[in-house]
Structures are given as C-alpha cells and as structure tokens.
C-alpha cells in the first residue's frame, strides 16, 4: 500500500522537476484535464511539458523498472542462481546488434522497422537461439540455459563493439546511449507494448506465484508437489523474454535493475513470491523513476544514460542492505 503511494508520488515529483520546473498543482491539473472529458483551462506551456514530454518518459521509466524487476524475479526462480538477470537470455546482446545496426550502417535497409523494431527483432532472435540451444527434447535445463545465454550475450557484445568501431563519432554516441539505456526520447507510442506485456505477465504470475515458491525448493520437490515443472519453466521463460524484449526495444539495455530489485525485495519481505512479485513491481517502478529523474537533473540541461546511474546508485544501496541483514544467509 505504502509503495503504491510512493509510485504515484515519485511519478508526480518526477514530472514536476526538470529544466523547466512545473508546480505540482499544475501537474495534477494537466493530468486531470487529460484524463477527464471536457475542456478545462490550463497553461499551454505546462500542458506541453507535462503531457507530451515528461509524462510518457516517467511512465516508461516506471513500466521499464517494474518489468525488468519482474523479469529478474522470474529468471532467478527459473535457474535458481542469484546472478540471473533479465539479460541472462542474451536478449540485450541481440537487441544491441539490431539497434546498433539501425543507428549506423543500414538505417535505410531496416528503416521500416526503426531502431525499436530492429532491437526487438534482435532480442527475439537471441532468445530463440538461447532457448533452442538450452533445450533437449522439449525440456529446458537451467544450467545449459545460463551457459547458452552467456555465450550469446558475449557474441552480441562483440558484434556491437565491432559496429561501434566502424561507426562515425555521431553514430557512436547514439549507440553508446542506447546500449546504456535511456527513456529520454519516450513518447506515448512507446508505452503500449511494454505496458500490455507487463499486464499479461503479471496476471499469469499472480495466478502461479505459489508454484514459483515450490520451484525454488528444487525440481524434484516441485514435481512431487504436483507441478508440471517443464511447463512452468517454459512459462517463466516466455514471461521474462516478452517483458525484457519489449522494454529493451524502447528503452535500451538498462542494466542492474532486474538483478538488484528482486534481491533487495527478498531481503526486505522474505522469499515468498506472493509478496516478492507485487513488491518488486512497485519498488522497480519507483527506483527507475527516481534514477531517471537524477540522470536528467544532475547535469542540467545535459542528459546522462540511465544505465550509468542504476549501477552507481543501486550498487552501494544494495551492498548496504546486504550488510545490514545480519541474520540473512545469502
């Protein structure tokens, strides 16, 4: 409950603060005007700043933070490895290749797709490759999944590096910004895909949260409790891939959120996925909204890639949390 309030509050503050500050009252007024029918009087300047620039950006940060955190929860439960994150499946590697190509050499060839489309295509190809390599007769082996994912991720980053070396300085900056992740260019049209993906995945996860708990006890335990382990694993893979691919394709490779938030949440509320999932959702959203706010206010009017700040801010916080949990074993 408290976290839901925090999400709304963080979003409102993030919309208000910026190069041109907007009073909180006007933020509420503009939002209200757009959400209710009828013509209310309001400042055109504020309207444009709030509704056209900041609102989609803040919302995308929230959805991306929430989605990456949930994807992280799914993959950590799937492979039962604390280092698992949304990019485990090589998604960012494939997406970077797509985006880097679209931003440098072949904009004409895949112009129809756009950078997002090219990144999404790259993500889908890499997931297909990883899952294809990791399965054996239709069964997914978590150990092989990790290794296949790591291999594809390295391959992706090698190819992206090569493209960067060949690109001109202007293109290079664009690629680097994309790889580190950014919601700066967010528009309303970027929102539907990740939001729908998040809603669908949440629905499935809330139904199956109990099964995730059993899966973290081990394959045999889960099977003994009447769970179709392979089907659950494939479902988790689908959820994590869908979330990560839709988010990466519009916001780039925002790192660390999907790794850090689930762990922080488990340290705070314990291992039960019926609590871990909703809390990760909200904490992920708050975290990325605030990080995005910092990334565009610290060095005004310049923008920093959000991916730099997720690690710079997240790592110390996480290490502090890890140390302060004296009783925890992890």
């Amino acid at each position: 409950m408290l976290l839901t309030v925090a999400v709304v509050l963080a979003a409102a503050v993030a919309i208000a603060v910026g190069t041109v500050p907007v009073p909180l009252g006007d933020v509420v007024a503009v939002t209200w005007a757009h959400l209710t029918p009828g013509d209310t009087e309001r400042s055109l300047l504020y309207d444009q700043i709030v509704w056209d620039f900041r609102a989609p950006r803040v919302l995308l940060a929230g959805v991306a933070g929430a989605g990456l955190s949930i994807a992280g929860v799914c993959l950590q439960a799937l492979v039962r490895n604390p280092l698992a994150d949304p990019y485990l499946l090589g998604i960012s590697g494939g997406a970077s290749i797509g985006a880097a190509l679209a931003l440098s050499f072949v904009p004409a060839a895949i112009a129809g797709l756009g950078v997002s489309g090219a990144a999404f295509l790259g993500a889908v190809v890499s997931v297909a490759l990883v899952v294809g390599l990791a399965q054996r007769a239709g069964r997914v082996a978590p150990g092989r999944l990790i290794l296949a994912g790591v291999a594809v991720a390295y391959l992706g980053s090698a190819i992206t590096s090569y493209i960067q070396l060949q690109a001109n300085p202007g293109e290079l900056r664009g690629i680097l910004f994309w790889v580190l992740g950014s919601v700066a260019a967010a528009s309303w049209s970027d929102l539907p895909a990740p939001t729908v993906a998040l809603a669908v995945c949440l629905l499935w996860l809330l139904v199956d949260g109990r099964r995730l708990n059993a899966l973290t006890m081990g394959e045999t335990s889960a099977a003994g409790l009447g769970i179709d382990v392979n089907r659950l694993r494939l479902g988790l893979l689908a959820v994590a891939s869908l979330l990560t691919a839709t988010i990466v394709s519009v916001a780039g490779g925002i790192g660390f959120v999907g790794l850090l938030v689930p762990h922080a949440v488990r340290l705070l509320v314990g291992p039960d996925h019926r609590r871990v999932i909703p809390v990760s959702l909200l904490l992920g959203a708050v975290f990325l909204i605030l990080v995005d706010l910092l990334s565009r206010t610290l060095d005004r009017p310049n923008e920093m890639p959000i991916g730099i700040f997720t690690a710079v801010l997240g790592a110390p916080f996480f290490l502090w949390l890890l140390r302060s949990q004296s009783g925890a074993v992890r």
Partner: peptide, 29 residues
C-alpha cells in the same frame, strides 16, 4: 500433474541449502 500431487508425496534428495523459507512455509507448500 496436480492430481499426481494428490496421489503421491515425495521426499527427494534436494535439500536446497540457500533457501530462506521458514519451516512452516515449506510444510504449507
């Protein structure tokens, strides 16, 4: 699969070391 879980219970060898569950939570599973 769920019906199978009502027919037989399993005590397997995977005593996962790194889980944070309380005893009661595990039994409730």
């Amino acid at each position: 699969a769920r019906r199978a879980g009502q027919l037989r219970a399993v005590v397997a060898q995977d005593q996962e070391l790194d889980n944070e569950y309380a005893v009661r939570d595990i039994v409730a599973m």
